[in-house]
Structures are given as structure tokens and as C-alpha cells.
Simulated scan of single mutants.
Amino acid sequence: MFTIEHDFDATIITLVDEGAASPEALRDDVIITAFEDCVTLRQFDPRREDDVVITLSLSQLRELAAALDLPEGSYRLKARKHHP
């Protein structure tokens, strides 16, 4: 399950873990905040009792999306030309 909210300067997506067979195996929500120039992923870590935050540039996000569908290897994405 996930939710999407549009804020003034960002889009916020919350991913809710519903896939585990037992409540103990469920992970905390992942909150993804998409800004104009970066994307942050935030999840509470119960071992540290604090949020873990990862910030990706938009190019890193594009590479991550591409990597999910590729086999092992080293890759470089070609820059896409923008057409008006």
C-alpha cells in the first residue's frame, strides 16, 4: 500500500509494508519526498531509535530506476536530449 500527497514544494509518497506474514517482520513506513532537485528516503530505524535519511540527486534516481531492470554489470546512462 502507498499514499501520495502533494505539498507546496514537494511530492510525498509513503510506502507501507503489508507483505510480511508476521507483525514482527514488518518494516516501518518509507517516506519518499521528491523536491525539484533531489529525492529523500526516510525510514525509522528501531535499533537506533532514529530516522535514517538518504538523499539522491535526480541523476542518481534515474540510474536507480534503470538498474532495477538490468543484469549484473557496469553501466552509464546516456544523456537524453530534450526536445521542445
Rank of each mutant, 00 (worst) to 15 (best):
V30T: 10
A10Q: 14
S59V: 10
L26Q: 11
S57E: 01
L64V: 08
I31C: 09
R80E: 07
R42F: 01
E36Y: 03
P84N: 06
R42E: 14
E72W: 04
T3W: 07
E18G: 14
D51K: 00
P23K: 00
P84S: 10
C38Q: 15
L70G: 08
D37M: 10
V52R: 04
K78G: 08
E49Q: 15
S59P: 00
L61W: 04
F8R: 15
K78E: 08
D17V: 07
L15K: 01
E72T: 08
D69E: 05
D50H: 04
F8W: 12
L64R: 10
R80C: 01
G19C: 03
A66K: 12
T14Y: 01
E36Q: 14
L68Q: 08
I31P: 00
F8T: 15
L26T: 14
L77M: 07
V52C: 10
A67G: 09
D45C: 13
L56P: 00
E72A: 12
S22K: 06
S59F: 06
F2G: 03
V52I: 13
L64Y: 06
E49I: 13
S74G: 03
Y75L: 03
A34T: 13
L77A: 02
Q43P: 14
D29H: 05
V52L: 10
L41D: 05
F8V: 15
Q60R: 14
A20K: 03
I31G: 02
T14M: 04
L58F: 00
R62T: 05
P23C: 01
L56N: 00
I4H: 07
T3L: 09
T11R: 06
V52E: 12
E49T: 14
R80Q: 04
T3M: 07
L61N: 01
L15Q: 02
D37C: 10
D50V: 03
L70N: 08
E63V: 02
D50N: 10
T14E: 09
E5R: 13
H6Q: 14
K81V: 06
E63S: 08
C38K: 15
D9L: 12
I12K: 11
H82A: 11
L15Y: 02
Q60N: 12
L77N: 02
A67H: 04
L61G: 03
I54M: 13
C38L: 15
F44M: 08
F2D: 06
E63G: 05
T40N: 01
K78N: 09
A10R: 15
A66T: 06
L58I: 05
T33S: 10
E24C: 08
I13D: 04
A79R: 07
V16C: 03
D9E: 11
L64C: 07
